[in-house]
Write a protein that binds this DNA or RNA. Structure first.
Lengths: 167, 167
DNA sequence: AGGAAATTGAAATTCATTTTCAATTATTTT
DNA sequence: AAAATAATTGAAAATGAATTTCAATTTCCT
């Protein structure tokens, strides 16, 4: 990639900037900015790796014993509504939130043994999907694609005959 | 498609044959064949279009008031375990069962307005998925791909500005 | 500061799914 | 064919994640 003095690559927004984006969204929609929302957003944006409300709540309640689960839950919904995150449900049926930078779209590889979630992006698949939808007269809004299997690490365990914990 | 006198296309198993397949599975696993399981399997195989346990239960309880929801629920699990059906969860978070003929694999188009589910199959996508998984050292067991949007019918409603009931 | 309006969080509710358990039914044994 | 053995049934209870309720608290606006 080429860098000139004049032009910079599109800046990846900082956590502070994202928090500002959320505050803007709240103000615009008539919601209030609160201490809790700020803390929750901060923690979410910091450690966000497909967290559930429960997980984030536990993380936060170490430091902030006075923030309730319900507030974490509701704030995650707000963060998703603001466009800073998406809600996703994988095969374990838990609702997870994933921090999102603008229009990136990606799909997921999920390890059936260790549960790790790997992201990938593939424009060819996106195009194919669009074509298929068109064939059926369908207007695609969004899609979901998940590959379930065994990751590099766990594959080895299988070969070694080690035990599988999950399902 | 060409038909000769000698060769026939691979036979699509009848409901009776599928029921026999289930009975075989049950016997082999030490389960029993019961009147209820027979009725439930029959109804499921007849009308199967991504039904939930609840839906199938309602359908059945018209004729058979003495078959409980729990039995329908459990029998669907058995049918899935036997390989005659798969369990699927779409965006509405309900567990649905879909009758399956051997190795057919397909994905889904789901209308966000009317909830209709259309199946499709695309070998190119399957291959692409395999290639992507390999890139990441992943061993794919299964996958899930769902396109959400508006079907041909509902697309028209959108243009006409008619109301959207769902979400 | 004062008042209107939204937020908080503990507790309650919802709703699908799953489990429990006593009564029943299917299968095997004698 | 009856008894013994073992699984199934189904109503009801339990589970567990997601969501709602509501009184007390906090934020925002003037």
């Amino acid at each position: 990639m080429i860098h000139s003095d004049e032009s910079k690559p599109a800046a990846v927004p900082t956590i502070a900037e994202k928090k500002e984006q959320l505050r803007k969204f709240l103000r615009q929609k008539g919601f209030k900015s609160t201490r809790q929302r700020d803390i929750i957003a901060g923690e979410f944006l910091k450690c966000s790796e497909h967290v559930t409300a429960e997980e984030l709540y536990k993380k936060i309640s170490n430091k902030h014993k006075n923030i309730g689960f319900t507030t974490v839950y509701r704030t995650l919904k707000l963060i998703a509504a603001s466009g800073l995150a998406t809600e996703r449900v994988f095969a374990d049926n838990l609702t997870r939130y994933e921090s999102l930078s603008a229009e990136d779209h990606h799909d997921h590889l999920i390890c059936l043994n260790c549960g790790s979630i790997t992201e990938f992006e593939n424009p060819k698949i996106e195009k194919l999907q669009e074509r298929i939808a068109n064939e059926f007269g369908f207007n695609t809004v969004t899609h979901k694609m998940e590959l379930y299997g065994y990751c590099r690490m766990c594959k080895k365990d299988v070969l070694r005959g080690e035990r599988f914990d999950r399902r």
